[in-house]
Design a protein around this nucleic acid. Structure first.
Lengths: 159, 159
DNA sequence: GGTGAAACAGAGACGCG
DNA sequence: CGCGTCTCTGTTTCACC
């Protein structure tokens, strides 16, 4: 196992065009290749090749629609902090693998500090949120402690 | 000002087709209308009208590329909990408006509980992260206290 | 690596059941 | 409302610089 984390391995150096493409697409994932090419000042075919390379290198991980959770009948959101009982790699990895598959889980953050994980979850109601925590987390022997903070509002930053 | 938050206003009831469209697009925001129509079992023109209606009703808030922050030279991510000095609406709203515009801020969560805000931020280095907190948060008179948790890993959930 | 033109596919408008 | 057809725009390939 390498001592240096993969996360620190630099990407093939991105030039200004690549960075401009990433900026445009993170603000508007459905921008047409034509329009994107015009904004970043290259020909459409060049732009297409760049964008494809960015996708294949992993710089672009995917494209997603931002769906209002309220529309899906999940008006509540919460951040649930989770502390595990043990911190061996196997236990930690297993918890992450399990938690991303739980219903309503938007994002799973493995964090340093007093807590081990922070789960961003959506729920239909306060009862559903309670049930989520009780049925999926509290019963998990790997979970020592959870703390749930209801999200009043979420705003998207600029990056 | 209404006593009942806008967030609680129900959307025009969505049927199974609408929900299927939302599910497909949140998993793959660039799915072509043709392919989307086939998956949700309606004609392309119908699918297009549905999707447009979902965008206009606000059920779909936008489309975004998920860019690996490491590719942008921002390999570090953190969750920064922020407690404010006062909790009057004006102060709280102002903080949110300010924080979403700060460089590196991905998302701002206004939460219930001991903390008032949780900021999901990206940074180029540990020093940059420290500078972000010191220069933008610690000096803010509205901010009473912050706590920074480095993110080791983030995984995207299904729901 | 970047470009332009040419073949191809998808988006979007409209009139009909 | 949902559907099929039509046009038009954007995508993608490829030979060339």
């Amino acid at each position: 196992m390498p001592l240096v984390s993969n996360v620190l391995r630099p990407f093939a150096a991105l030039d200004d065009t690549d960075r401009a493409i990433l900026a445009e697409l993170s603000a508007n994932g459905r921008l047409a290749n034509n329009a994107l090419a015009e904004r970043v000042r290259v020909a459409p075919s060049t732009c297409l090749a760049r964008t494809r390379a960015l996708r294949e290198s992993g710089a672009i991980r995917g494209f997603y629609a931002d769906v209002d959770p309220a529309a899906l009948g999940l008006p509540l959101q919460a951040l649930v902090s989770v502390r595990l009982t043990e911190h061996a790699r196997a236990a930690v990895d297993a918890f992450r693998a399990r938690s991303v598959r739980l219903p309503g889980v938007v994002s799973v953050f493995h964090v340093a500090g007093a807590e081990d994980y922070v789960l961003h979850v959506r729920a239909a109601s306060a009862e559903a949120l309670r049930d989520f925590v009780l049925d999926h987390l509290a019963v998990d022997p790997a979970v020592q402690h959870t703390q749930t903070s209801l999200i009043f509002e979420q705003a998207r930053g600029l990056g």
